[in-house]
Simulated scan of single mutants.
Amino acid sequence: MRVLIAPDKFAGTLTAVQAAEAIATGWRRQAPDDELDLAPMADGGPGFVDVLHAALGGSLDAVTVRGPHGTPVPAVVLRVGETAYVESAQAAGLHLVSGSPETASSFGVGELVSAAVDGGAHTVVVGLGGSGTTDGGAGLLAALGATSDGVLDGGAAGLASVTSVDLAAARSRLSGVDLVAASDVDNPLTGLFGAAKTFGPQKGLAEDRIAEVDGWLESFATATDRRTSLEKGAGAAGGIGYALLVLGAAREPGIGLVTDAVSLAERARAADLVVTGEGAFDFSSRAGKVPYGVAGVASEALRPCIALAGQVLVGSREMRALGIESAYSLVELVGEERALGAPGDALADLAQRVARTWSR
Rank of each mutant, 00 (worst) to 15 (best):
L167S: 12
S175N: 14
L144D: 11
V180W: 04
S172K: 14
D184I: 10
D186W: 01
G176K: 02
H122C: 13
D186Q: 14
P201R: 01
L179K: 01
S161H: 12
G119P: 02
L159S: 03
L112G: 06
L152C: 11
S106A: 13
P188I: 10
G132W: 06
A146N: 05
T134K: 09
S172I: 09
A156Q: 10
G204N: 02
K197E: 12
D118G: 14
Q202H: 05
P201C: 09
G191D: 04
T190C: 15
F107M: 01
T190F: 03
T133V: 11
G176P: 01
N187E: 00
G194I: 00
F193Q: 15
S100M: 04
A169D: 15
D178H: 15
G120K: 01
G200Q: 01
V124H: 08
A146W: 07
T163M: 12
L192A: 15
D135H: 07
R171V: 09
T133Q: 07
V117Y: 05
S148Y: 07
G194F: 04
S164Q: 14
A121F: 11
A169P: 03
D118L: 15
S100N: 08
V113E: 09
H122T: 14
D178Q: 15
F199V: 09
V124M: 05
L189M: 04
S100C: 06
G110T: 06
T133Y: 07
S131I: 13
L192H: 12
G108H: 13
D153S: 14
T134A: 06
A156T: 02
G145R: 02
A168H: 14
L189H: 10
A182E: 06
G132V: 08
L144N: 11
V125K: 03
S98P: 04
G119I: 04
A181P: 01
D135I: 00
T134F: 03
G158Q: 06
D135S: 04
V113Y: 12
L174P: 00
G120E: 05
G137C: 04
A182D: 06
T133K: 09
A115L: 07
G154I: 12
L141T: 08
G130N: 07
G136K: 10
S148M: 09
G154V: 00
S98E: 15
V177W: 01
L174C: 00
L192C: 03
A146M: 04
R173P: 00
A146K: 03
V165A: 10
G136M: 01
D149M: 04
L141E: 08
T123A: 10
A157M: 06
G150C: 05
R171S: 14
L140F: 08
D178N: 14
L159G: 01
A170E: 05
G136F: 06
L174F: 13
A143K: 01
L189N: 04
S100G: 06
A157L: 13
R173Y: 13
A157F: 10
